[in-house]
Design a binder for these strands. Structure first.
Length: 819
RNA sequence: GGGGGAGUGGUGGAAUGGCAGACACAGCAGACUCAAAAUCUGCCGGCCUCACCGGCCGUGAGGGUUCAAGUCCCUCCUCCCCCA
């Protein structure tokens, strides 16, 4: 039969239509097969898929298909992380309702995913902006409120005075409003928080336990740093005038004799009482600048002297009280003692403002530095000096002893502090889950009764881009009877952070239609923890800590029994063009649709897997994409040329058979090993290319039997990477029944895979001089003799004395000579 | 400043102490073609020699361990990410 041209559009459109219609990728959930949950981070429906999605989902899809073929019941769901700010921006800019905008994006992107042939169980699709999903956010919120895990307190928001609106952090650019460039202020608002700090210890501990094996080390490191546990002490300094206590947190109580001032965070409660009104304005400016700049990084250190002094409880000395922009209210006690001699930041600050430096720790084998000559802080451990009764004590001991002393005397305590703060979830926006509480003048904050959930977002809302929250202007929404006293009351108009939606969505996938509960625990249990979660490293901290927290809360509520949501995490690299991440603003995006049309989905998927190992960033390169198309086209033409021969079968076994089958089984071994280890699919695909090169070379001499075997196994192992083409070959060319994901993954035959003999490189003094082919397993002596007898080797041994011969059987010979 | 990762041909990459550059892209030469595309064949790290055989150098720089180092150890440089 003559070969056929590879018509990717016709092939792919045919199969994607079939796959969309039936239940092929539905998880069975009947316990007949071992369960395997593979999940890619669900997308935000921004409008169109981008190449990052294609890469992420190609990795997940390859794994899912492989696991099906391995005989697992695979749960491979998808949904939409559908709340978020871009929808509101679109509403303001294009005068489109955020809901309509979002749902039309969802519809479009779903078509793209179907066209790409990803193996999702669409019966479990969830969309977080729909009430049947977000009502359970509200339900969880109320449960957390009952458990004391949700609470209200004052917190800062970014406020643009010109637009008269609250800005999200990403709407603040260089401390200015993204739309009108007005300098952003900080305002205090009552906001809701979730007590993630209650789980700080466990969140940290598990990074050393159950997550150690299955998560990338760098993600664990980032999380540990983010949680930021530090052991230290709290100590009370005393305000000189009033005798009021000022509690400071320090990790180095052993340096307290070197404290030359006390520095308060600008938001510290004492500040208002200590400073005059004119200094207060400067403090406010500091807070505003901090709020906007502090997030982007290096704000210059700035300080203000309050004119007040505090007494050091250890030394009895007097220390000036300052206000400093680098002291954080949210960390420790919001006040520090500055020890310039032994802390780099304090050193810088004190130098800047002429505050004295007093060294009190000397190196173990050195002298105490003098203030005048110090160029840097001495931050290492050492020995205490000029520190009263602790003089001469080692730092490590002094820390414990002094903390104990402070506790005994009642002016301090040993203390553990975390960097992680409680999760502020209030957003002054429309497009999010309404927080289900009602504010009543008489009864205070009243939770919405469970029976009244969901609190639905009203559809008719005006988007002016002004004011505290668009919901605040919707009277029908805001005005409501108090559930407790039936009197007039107002609904909360803030909505929840969208990270809430993604904190538990993977549980909902197990029971997506449940109207009685977020999910049935019995349906969730078999699938958790998730066997494999795949996504970008950009979510290494927020999403992946919040969802770990949520899991622990649900466990403590008795809904689940696992303590962690994800057993194995894989973080794939970015897709770049011109060395930069693709982004609209850079104008370097490549549209997947265009590529699918031009080269086909299989080609695109194959390219994203071939261009680099999946954990590394990869560069988009269209001519290399063409190379993948060329490969698939060669596969198809090879198959179609040989289909008849394969169907006939028979024929005498030939020398070419032997070689081709050997390569076939070596390739099977390689591809399987890649799945079982590092997922370096780039080398799996390279191996299949090598196989095709060999097959084309041997083509004329292959028997019908060999061809039949080869085509079948090649088709099976190609399937996780190029599902359309392989299915086409299976069904049409080979005329076989059924879908490939229902076929078993082909095992390699070690006997057939074995090389004829070992090719042994022979080195002289570590330099390659010759190669010989020998039978496997020959003795060391024989090998040495053969090596020494080799003509090319002899030329290099001539006139020299053999000192030593290194023999690695079946591997290598190295002859060491002298002279 | 601290923590993490990386640095290999023109390019993406391969090689987990044992033959550096698999596989592919680009390039060059040829076949087919009126021509082009597609396809196929050959060459493709540098230098020396060059008809052939061959030799020397080469994985950011320098040192070390080893019979053997891209790979392990030390020092340094550059880039990226995270945290300050």
């Amino acid at each position: 039969m003559p070969e056929k041209p590879y018509e990717h559009i016709q092939i792919e459109e045919k199969w994607s239509a079939q796959w969309a219609e039936n239940d092929l990728y539905k998880a069975r959930c009947d316990g007949s097969l071992p369960p395997y949950y593979v999940l890619e981070m669900f997308p935000y429906p921004s409008g169109r898929l981008h190449m990052g999605h294609v890469r992420n989902y190609s990795i997940g899809d390859a794994l899912a298909r492989f696991m099906w073929m391995r005989g697992y019941d695979v749960l491979h769901p998808i949904g939409w992380d559908a709340f978020g700010m871009p929808a509101e921006n679109a509403a303001i800019k294009k005068n489109m309702h955020p809901g309509d905008w979002t749902l039309s994006n969802v519809a479009g992107m779903k078509q793209q995913l179907l066209r790409l042939g990803f193996s999702y169980d669409w019966s479990r699709e969830i969309t977080t902006c729909l009430p049947d999903y977000y009502r359970w956010n509200q339900w969880f919120f109320l449960k957390m409120l009952e458990r004391g895990l949700a609470y209200r307190k004052d917190a800062k928001v970014n406020w643009c005075p010109d637009c008269a609106t609250v800005l999200a952090n990403e709407q603040v650019e260089d401390g200015r409003c993204w739309r009108c460039s007005t300098v952003v202020e900080q305002r205090q608002l009552q906001q809701w928080f979730l007590k993630i700090t209650a789980y700080a210890d466990e969140l940290l501990e598990e990074t050393y336990q159950s997550l150690e094996k299955g998560w990338p080390e760098r993600v664990l490191t980032m999380q540990r740093n983010w949680i930021g546990r530090s052991e230290g002490a709290e100590v009370d300094f005393t305000h000189e005038g009033t005798g009021e206590k000022i509690r400071v947190f320090t990790t180095r109580i052993d340096t307290i004799y070197g404290a030359t001032c006390v520095i308060l965070a600008p938001e510290h409660p004492l500040v208002g009482r200590l400073v005059s009104s004119e200094v207060a304005a400067q403090v406010k400016a500091m807070v505003d600048e901090l709020g906007s700049k502090g997030r982007t990084g290096d704000a210059e250190k700035a300080g203000l002297f309050t004119g007040h002094y505090a007494i050091n409880p250890f030394s009895g000395g007097k220390a000036p009280i300052w206000i400093g922009n680098f002291v954080l209210m949210g960390y420790g006690t919001g006040a520090i003692m500055a020890v310039p001699a032994h802390d780099e930041r304090d050193f810088e600050f004190c130098k800047q403002y002429g505050i004295p430096i007093r060294p009190v720790i000397r190196p173990v084998d050195g002298e105490l530095a003098t203030a005048a000559t110090m160029k840097h802080a001495f931050t290492e451990y050492g020995v205490c000096e000029n520190t009263g009764q602790w003089s001469g004590m080692k730092t490590e001991e002094a820390r414990k002893a002094m903390a104990a002393h402070a506790a005994k005397e009642g002016f301090g305590t040993a203390s553990i502090t975390f960097r992680i703060k409680d999760w502020g979830i209030s957003r002054q926006r429309y497009w999010g889950t309404p927080i289900p509480v009602i504010h009543c003048k008489k009864c205070g904050v009243v939770p919405v009764p469970y029976a009244q959930l969901p609190v639905e977002l009203p559809y008719k809302v005006e988007f002016t881009g002004k004011g505290r929250s668009p919901l605040a202007n919707v009277r029908e929404f805001v005005n409501v009877a108090c559930p407790a006293c039936q009197g007039p009351a107002q609904r909360e108009t803030d909505t929840m952070d969208t990270f809430i939606d993604s904190s538990w969505y993977f549980y909902r996938f197990c029971d997506p239609k449940n109207t009685e509960a977020p999910f049935d625990p019995a349906k969730v249990a078999p699938w958790f923890p998730i066997d494999q979660y795949i996504g970008g490293v950009t979510h290494a901290i927020l999403h992946l800590i919040y969802s770990r927290f949520w899991t622990k809360v649900m466990r403590d509520m008795g809904l689940i029994s696992n303590s962690e949501p994800v057993r194995n995490l894989f973080t794939q690299g970015m897709v770049q063009l011109g060395g930069k991440a693709m982004s609209k603003s850079r104008g370097n995006v490549v549209d997947p649709d265009e590529m699918v049309q031009k080269y086909g989905a299989d080609t695109c998927r194959l390219f994203t897997l071939f261009a680099a190992p999946p954990e590394k960033d990869m560069e988009w390169n269209e001519s290399s994409v063409q190379g993948q198309h060329r490969f698939l086209s060669r596969v198809y033409r090879f198959v179609s040329r040989n289909t008849d021969k394969a169907r006939q079968g028979g024929g005498e076994a030939t020398a070419e058979d032997r070689k081709a089958l050997r390569k076939l089984h070596q390739t099977l071994e390689k591809v399987t090993a890649d799945f079982d280890s590092r997922w370096h699919f780039n080398t799996s695909i390279a191996a299949m290319m090598e196989l095709l090169n060999t097959l084309e070379e041997m083509e004329a001499g292959l028997s019908g039997n060999a061809v039949a075997q080869i085509l079948e196994k090649l088709c099976l192992m190609l399937h996780p990477f190029a599902p359309f083409l392989s299915q086409e070959i299976w069904s049409v060319e080979l005329g076989r029944e059924g879908q490939l994901i229902r076929q078993g993954w082909p095992a390699h035959d070690p006997e057939l895979a074995k090389d004829e003999g070992a090719e042994i490189p022979i080195q002289v003094n570590g330099k390659l001089r010759s190669r010989i082919v020998v039978p496997f397993g020959i003795s060391r002596d024989q090998l040495e003799q053969l090596a020494q007898a080799d003509e090319k080797v002899r030329a290099h041994l001539d006139g020299k004395q053999v000192v030593k011969v290194i023999i690695v059987p079946d591997k290598l010979v190295n002859i060491v000579v002298k002279g």
